[in-house]
Simulated scan of single mutants.
Amino acid sequence: MAILADHGSRGNPLQHKRHAEILERLDNGEELSIGELAREWNVDPKTIQRDFDKLKQMYPERVERAEDKKRYRKPLSRRAQNDGDMVLEMLESMVKDIGVDFYKKAHPLLERLQRQIKSPFYTRLDVEDIGSKFEIVMHLEKAIEQKREVTLSYTPYGAKIPSEYTNVRPIKVIVYEGFWYLLAQQRSYTKKFYIKSISSCEITDLTFHHNPKIIERLENSINVWFSTNVEPYEVRLWVDKSVVVYFERKPVAKNQKLYKQPDGSAELVLKVTSDEEIYPLLKYWIPTIRVIEPQRIQEKFEGMLSGYLSNKF
């Protein structure tokens, strides 16, 4: 029996391969765009449109148009569409992981909304417990909403005594790798304050307007090492075929571009504002990923590995 080929002569996936991947990605919770798939697979958008039309006809329980009418998704259950029970169940499961103190404060509200629902969800979020900083976070939330400056009592890393930081303009409370930070401006600098090191927060009467570019840089960042003062630059990485699917399912960053190769590997293109954003990614996926450009990142990473293996840190 002949083995059915997956790719054509130009390396783009054939119809049966496209159909299988579309269904797999929809089942994994992705929302798919005709334009994005056409660019990823280097085929005509009309071809992808025909793929979805055929799949909708063959598998109506697995394919539907999303609410924006621009993407496709796996159909939601009637229950999920008609009420918020599923969302509440997921929130209840997630806040348990944030910490005991935080859960004690959040649980009564969720319980009143959720009532007697028996949750089928389990989530495991590696998020540190900031329950003891709940009041500070509430102050920061109010200051962010009202765009008012704050004064912080903050102990920088390595210091033993807190210092006073005035004219702090809070922008967002952010979580990276399970750690909580305040992204803020102070004078001409953008800073990230570690939430657990803030001992007090006082809201002032001074208002401000932050630079929208900061939010744009935040939304395109990979991790907390991003910079708001550097223009983004491109990093190209090679990804082994054994792990390409994980970058398809969950993009590393909002600006990620993934170009699959005929041999199953892929070229991953990211825009970053600091080389430091790339090193945690390389460490996590070693040995299935490496830097193509800029070469200095790969060379420095190899130096880190050599130092580790030789015990010379």
Rank of each mutant, 00 (worst) to 15 (best):
L23P: 02
V175L: 09
K191Y: 03
K260R: 15
N12V: 02
D51F: 03
R73M: 14
L305S: 06
V244R: 09
Y284E: 01
V224M: 07
I278G: 05
E164K: 01
Q185K: 07
L268W: 11
G264S: 08
I203R: 05
Y59K: 09
W41H: 02
Y194P: 01
K196N: 12
S153L: 05
Q185G: 15
T151Y: 00
D97G: 11
R124Q: 15
S242W: 04
V150C: 12
I198W: 05
E277F: 03
Y308G: 12
Q295D: 09
Y154D: 04
V224N: 11
V95C: 03
T273F: 03
R25H: 08
P287Q: 01
Y154V: 02
A106W: 01
Y181D: 00
K96Q: 14
P13W: 09
V175Y: 05
S153H: 04
K172L: 07
I195M: 01
Q57S: 15
Y59F: 14
E219S: 09
N220Y: 05
E67I: 13
N167G: 03
K241M: 11
K56Q: 10
I215A: 02
K196F: 06
E293M: 01
I198G: 00
R115P: 01
I171D: 05
P170M: 14
E293Y: 00
E61K: 07
F134V: 10
P287W: 03
V269T: 14
K96W: 00
Q186F: 06
F179I: 09
E276K: 14
P45T: 10
D101H: 08
D51W: 00
E111H: 13
Y103S: 10
K118T: 11
G307V: 04
L88G: 06
Q298V: 00
V235Q: 00
S199V: 05
G8I: 10
K300L: 10
F52C: 04
